[in-house]
Structures are given as structure tokens and as C-alpha cells.
Design a protein around this nucleic acid. Structure first.
Lengths: 251, 251
DNA sequence: CGTGCGTTTGATGGCAATCAATTTATGTGG
DNA sequence: CCACATAAATTGATTGCCATCAAACGCACG
């Protein structure tokens, strides 16, 4: 069984046979990913159900809205975006997924994926068949609890976004996203102040309920205020405190 | 052990000792609530862990943001709203909960409730201690799956709201909410075309990212277009097809 | 070097927020 | 039960933020 990759309209898949020997035990993300809070022999069992396959190329889909739901996925490297398509053809980006994060959980309720997921850059993925995960969860209380927590976190993050979209200005939304990315980098022991945005301005705007032009203007403004240094996709946070006060967030 | 009811600032609780003999087996909501998909002896076990206590009065809190998380809750009668408070004091309503629906799942991730929940009218609640639910879930695959599905549905509904807030006009948002309430009424075998809104205009606007004035104007407009009949909180959907086309939703 | 895409910047307009005032519901004490 | 007080909802006038329209710029690529 391999990762289900929708191929219509996607770039051809380049075979790649190295670097498949990763396992949960030696993965450097196991402190923030699913294996967190498992004993080493439990990790082995989890590892046994996880499928790894060739990396996704940029713009390839991991799954599409409406696809039969079979697995959730962990990002090992690269970044993905999840998005829904409204029936008048517009897109709504519902989330970005960085290494160590889990996606696909919105497919559980209807046995069909409620959103599409595509790679923003080359990405390595761990596939976790859901029936196996359910079976293991029933046997390993820690795993069950951890997965409940992951789903709950997805809910709280979506609610955070709801609040952002409903209550905050364009400046605040962009600032909040920069802080979120910064924090997630820090969790992976990367720089919290300097990073490269994996997504386009269009995606940022779409996620934040803004147009590209507005996003661009906000970046310009922040640069003029010396809060951020923006060089295309390269971001440097010059004034973290200023950025936080600009974000003006709850919690 | 009783329901944890925060009482500061709330109306005094009137004791009420009748009507506590409901159980999951005879509850008329068991076709849409947690017991769904359980065998009758499994239902008995679920019933044993569920706590029922005196009804919540209007404006009383079921739990508050930051409270220690201990249980999820099912609504047996009445309506609740969930909301977050931003640190500059504003509220964001994140959901309305009708009979048969489950709330409180956003508290799992941090062992603390991520939002507050208060009754919009007198409400009867079933409390489901989470540790017991976890234990039972490990023993009953159907229950585990059903609860995963409930959480997943919460995620997809939040994503629906995200899309609504990000992409739709005031008219579309209000239309979508009316359709949502209509559908949820239908699920409970109530009228899909005639109902009483349990929440105020302020709450509606807050939930939809609009001001009270805008909500009121939209209702007036819809009434003028003969799509809705609005008499304060009494709503009649005169033209369901028109309302749907007005909502202009994805999926 | 031209083509195309992503990004930036500028000018204008529209939708919903804000401010303000009135009307209608709700609730309370005499 | 009515008079009063308070809260909720409606309607109107004006403002402001961000979308839209338009054009130029930079960069990657063939």
C-alpha cells in the first residue's frame, strides 16, 4: 500500500529511492509529532503501521476534497497547505502544515476528505492508516489521549483563526501569522526571527481573508516601521515585541 | 460529583428535582447524540458514566475559558453559546449548541477549556467525564470511532465558518446561519421553516463577524424580499430555495 | 532577450462599521 | 396591572478600511 497521490494535472512524480530508512524512533521530530509520550516499544508498534513513500513535489496533491478518507498524515519535511474549494470556484486556505504537524483529521467525520492538501515545496510525508491508528489507540491509552489532544488542538487553532478573521484588522492578521510561523519554527529548534516563507502572498491573503495587494501593503508598512525586514519570501523579525503588540491577540 | 457550575455573577440556581430520570436508552435524542451506533448493553455502560444534574438557568455558565477540563457535555434541552474572550475584552462567539450536540471538546488539548459556554435559555445538560469516556472508548471501538468523528465534525464545521467569514458577504453569512439552524431543527424532527432564535442579534453578529446593525439590516432586507418573515426572534423561512441561493455556500 | 508569473504600488469605489437617534421589547416595583 | 426603567432591535447618516481596478516592476525561465 502506498500513499494515495492524485496525479491528474500534477507534475510527473520523480522516483527517489534514498532516505526512506527514517523511523519514528530516530526521527528528529519525534518530540513534537505523534510518537510524543510513547514508550520505546510502543513507538516500535506505531512505527510498524506508518507508511513512508517518495516525497511529494511542489504543487502535488497529498489528497483532494472528496477523496475517500483512509489515513492521516504527518509532515516530515517541507510544507503543505490545506484548502477548501467553494462551489463558485474560489479557494479558502484553512491551514499550513509544517514538519512534525498532522493533517487530514477533518476527513474522519464523513470518511471523505473535507479539504485538499498540496505541497508548497518538496515534502516528505508519513502516512498513518486510520484503521490501524484506531486499533493501536484502543490498546495504548497514551496514544489515544495524544490523538484526542491533536484533534482538539486543531479545533482550538481553527477557533483562533475564526476570531482573527472576525475581529482583527489586516495588520493584526498578518502579524499574527508571522508570530505563529515564528513560534512553530522555534518548536523545531529553528530561528524564531529569521525564516523563509514557504507560501505565496496569494496563499497568505487567502488564509487571512485578505487580498494579495493588502498583504503586500501590510508588509511594506511593517518594513517602514522597522518591525520586519521583508525580502520577497525572506522574513526577519526586527522587533518581536512590536510585532506582538501589533498582533493584539487574545490568549 | 456534580456539574461544575461557575456561579460568580450568575443568577441564583433554583433547585429542581424532577425530570432527572432520563437515560441514554430512553432519551429521544439518542439517534443524533453520543449513543448513536452503540448496542443497547453498551449504551447502558455509557449511561453509567454520564452525570445529570439540575438545569442551567439562562446566562449561567457551564464552564469558563481557562477552567480545568474534566468533561465534555451533551445538550439535552435548551441552547448554549460558546465564546472566547480576547485580551482586550471583546468576545468571539465560536458556536451555538442545540439539543443532541456535544460541546467542550476544545478543552482536551490543554486540559483547560479554551472557550466559555453559557446558556442562552434554561438548558438541561449531560456531563460526560472525559477519563471515563476515554476508558470506555478503548473498550468499545464503535464509541471510539464515533467520538473521533464528532471531533472531526467540529473541525469541519469550524472550517466552514472560517470560509464563511473570509469569503462571504453579510447577506450570505446570515442566510447560511438560518439554513444551519433550519437543518439542525429538521434533524430533531422540528420544523425546518419555522422556529424561534434562541440567541440575540448581538450574538448572531458576533458569531458571523458582523455588527448588530448589519444583522438587523440584513433581516429587514430579507423580509422585504419575502425570503424570510421576521418577528423579533420568530423566524419563518418563506422561500427556502431563495435563501439557499442567497447563502451561496460551498458543499 | 522576451515571456510570464509573483509582487509591489497607486487610484478609486463599495460594503459594512461607526455614530446617533428612535422604536420596540423586557422586566420591576408600586 | 400599569408606570417606569432598562435592554434589545431597528433605521438613518457618515466614515473608513479593504477590495477592486490598473499599471509597473523584478525575477526566473526557456
Amino acid at each position: 500500500m502506498t500513499i494515495h497521490i492524485a496525479q491528474q494535472g500534477d507534475a510527473a512524480v520523480k522516483p527517489c529511492n534514498h532516505d526512506y530508512q527514517v523511523n519514528c524512533g530516530n526521527c528528529r521530530l519525534n518530540g513534537i509529532c505523534l510518537p510524543l509520550a510513547l514508550e520505546s516499544d510502543d513507538i516500535q508498534q506505531l512505527d510498524d503501521i506508518i507508511q513512508r513513500s517518495k516525497p511529494l513535489q511542489k504543487n502535488q496533491h497529498l489528497y483532494r476534497e472528496g477523496d475517500h478518507f483512509q489515513s492521516v498524515f504527518a509532515v516530515r519535511s517541507g510544507t503543505l497547505k490545506a484548502y477548501k474549494t467553494t462551489d463558485d470556484g474560489r479557494e479558502q486556505v484553512t491551514g499550513f502544515y509544517f514538519p512534525g504537524e498532522i493533517l487530514g483529521m477533518d476527513g474522519i467525520s464523513n470518511n471523505a476528505h473535507a479539504s485538499s492538501a498540496k505541497a508548497l515545496e518538496t515534502a516528505a510525508i508519513c502516512e498513518i492508516p486510520f484503521v490501524s491508528l484506531e486499533r493501536l489507540s484502543a490498546l495504548m491509552p497514551n496514544l489515544q489521549r495524544h490523538f484526542f489532544q491533536l484533534m482538539s488542538r486543531e479545533i482550538t487553532e481553527d477557533q483562533q483563526l475564526i476570531t482573527l478573521l472576525s475581529k482583527n484588522s489586516a495588520d493584526e492578521r498578518v502579524a499574527a501569522l508571522m508570530l505563529s510561523i515564528s513560534g512553530r519554527n522555534a518548536r523545531r529548534k529553528l530561528s524564531a526571527t529569521q525564516f523563509r516563507l514557504p507560501m505565496s502572498r496569494v496563499d497568505i491573503g487567502n488564509y487571512l481573508g485578505l487580498t494579495v495587494e493588502t498583504v503586500s501593503r501590510v508588509f511594506s508598512r511593517m518594513q517602514k516601521m522597522a518591525v520586519l525586514r521583508v525580502d520577497n519570501k525572506e522574513i526577519e523579525i526586527l522587533d518581536p515585541a512590536g510585532l506582538r503588540s501589533m498582533a493584539n491577540l487574545g490568549s
